[in-house]
């Protein structure tokens, strides 16, 4: 699925059936293309993004907006911590935990 540049302004319809592998794939795609701006970067799912110096803390806000648009899950900013968002795996766990 091609990445939507900028993303839609409305929240996507909730897709409760989306499996974690798909969620991981879309997060990874977004991070490489939009945040690292290197679509080919071989990002591992357990690779530390913030403490590893790949993205900065300003990107947390962008990830929050993306997660809401792509998965219809609102992550309160108290959840947008380095501990919750440092790897793709941690992000998926945080989204699943927050999802109603």
């Amino acid at each position: 699925m091609p990445l939507r540049q900028g993303g839609p302004r409305h929240a996507a319809r909730r897709t409760p059936t989306m499996d974690t592998a798909e969620m991981r794939r879309r997060l990874r795609e977004f991070i490489c293309a939009e945040l690292l701006r290197k679509p080919d970067y071989p990002l591992a799912h357990d690779e530390p993004l913030i403490t590893g110096g790949l993205i900065d803390s300003f990107s947390l806000a962008r990830i929050g907006v993306f997660v809401e648009e792509a998965f219809a899950v609102y992550l309160p900013d108290t959840e947008l911590t380095v501990a919750n968002m440092d790897t793709v795996d941690a992000m998926v766990a945080c989204i699943l935990k927050t999802r109603p």
Binding site: P48, I50, T51, G52, G53, L54
Partner: peptide
């Protein structure tokens, strides 16, 4: 990776 990690942990700069 090592370079990025050290810069981030010591200066808060992201390369």
């Amino acid at each position: 990776s090592e370079l990025r990690r050290r810069i981030a942990r010591q200066t808060e700069i992201t390369l």
